[in-house]
């Protein structure tokens, strides 16, 4: 069983702020991004970075969620541009 760490609002709030900042940046990217490529590379980098101190996660959730926010922002940008 994989240990995902304790997921509560206290531990995930930082990542949610990151998601918001990532979304802000994502809506400015005009080119189409390959979502699977970035998710796989992002999970690998997040695993290598490790979680922030005091956040006992197996990988950096703030990095992954920021990336998800950016990709989501990019999709929204693409939808609204059409």
């Amino acid at each position: 069983m994989i240990n995902y760490g304790l997921i509560t609002i206290n531990t995930m709030f930082l990542s949610l702020v990151g998601m918001l900042v990532g979304f802000l940046l994502g809506i400015t990217i005009n080119t189409k991004l390959n979502i699977w490529f970035y998710l796989i590379v992002g999970v690998f980098i997040a695993y290598m970075l490790g979680s922030l101190p005091y956040y006992n996660f197996p990988m950096s959730y703030s990095f992954i969620l920021s990336l998800v926010g950016l990709l989501f922002g990019n999709i929204i940008n693409k939808v609204f541009k059409k």
Binding site: L14, G18, F63
Partner: peptide, 21 residues
């Protein structure tokens, strides 16, 4: 482009961890 995107997310990560790292 991939380097820019990864660098951008790394920047967000560095901002977020500013108070502990």
């Amino acid at each position: 482009i991939p380097m820019s995107i990864i660098l951008m997310i790394l920047g967000v990560y560095v901002i977020l961890g500013g108070h502990i790292t």
